[in-house]
């Protein structure tokens, strides 16, 4: 049986780990290689690294981090933030990334999804979608460029277009919930799972294990990604899985 996944998400700013609240208010939370070693010991299922530095025009610093992490953690890494070309993606994969995470460019250049997918397989292309609840209620507004640019397409429309281009997974993040530790946006995750035929990772809002349980039990989500939960509390993936196993949710045995 395929297991559910719990994924620590690590935001990188100038080579340091940071954590945001609603995509702002950065706090330094450490060194990515050291934290990845700890997450490995804590039996995390996968690691997501997102570079949120907007003034770095290249992916070289990200590749350096991944090259270091791949010496200490033996699990899949999804890496993104600032990927602008096929060559950027190929460079990250060559340096240890298993999957690349595309966000802003996925709105404008579907060809890059197709090229990466055809070369490295669909599973190597994760499209990250940042969403805000529509102020009028009902539906979501999609945002690119670290939440600063509004995109004129629906969640379902964007998911369908990216899948048709070759995306193999979606990373759906709630900007409203980011860093609040107030729980996942379950309707957002549910809508994404309904629209996608490939796996969906939900992100944004993790604060305690009950919220993980609710999101896993109330949606078909394949994985949940957590920042604050593991950054700021004494929670860790081992304890999360021990708790969630009580509700019949399956996790890996190593």
């Amino acid at each position: 049986m395929l297991k559910k996944r719990i994924i620590p998400v690590q935001l990188l700013l100038d080579g340091r780990l940071v954590k945001t609240t609603r995509f702002g208010e950065y706090r330094d939370v450490g060194d990515p290689v050291k934290s990845s070693r700890v997450y490995s010991d804590q039996r995390a299922d996968e690691l997501v690294f997102l570079n949120i530095s907007r003034d770095q025009p290249n992916v070289t610093p990200l590749a350096e981090v991944i090259a270091g992490v791949s010496k200490v953690a033996f699990m899949p890494f999804a890496v993104g933030g600032g990927i602008r070309s096929f060559d950027d993606a190929a460079f990250l994969i060559k340096n240890g990334a298993d999957k690349v995470v595309l966000n802003s460019i996925a709105y404008r250049d579907k060809e890059i999804i197709t090229r990466i997918s055809e070369r490295f397989g669909a599973q190597a292309v994760v499209v990250s979608i940042d969403a805000r609840r529509a102020p009028s209620g009902g539906g979501y507004i999609l945002k690119s460029a670290c939440g600063t640019v509004t995109e004129d397409i629906t969640l379902a429309g964007h998911i369908a277009a990216c899948e048709a281009a070759g995306a193999g997974e979606f990373f759906v993040q709630s900007i409203d919930q980011d860093g609040t530790m107030a729980g996942f946006d379950i309707p957002l995750i549910r809508e994404a799972c309904r629209s996608a035929t490939v796996p969906v990772i939900g992100c944004g809002g993790s604060g305690d294990y009950n919220q993980l349980r609710d999101a896993f039990l109330e949606t078909n989500v394949s994985a949940l990604a957590c920042g604050s939960l593991f950054n700021f509390s004494d929670s860790n993936p081992i304890r999360a899985k021990a708790f969630l196993s009580n509700y019949g949710l399956p996790f890996k045995v190593v």
């Binding site: 395929l2 035929t197 796996p199």
Partner: peptide, 28 residues
């Protein structure tokens, strides 16, 4: 079921083999 098959899944050993030394049945 979704394609690709992505994630942790258990390995059922179908025979003994030197590469399986020390591995339990149904590890992920």
């Amino acid at each position: 079921l979704r394609i690709p098959h992505v994630g942790w899944n258990s390995l059922t050993k179908k025979k003994d083999h030197p590469v399986y030394e020390g591995l339990k049945q149904d590890q992920d």
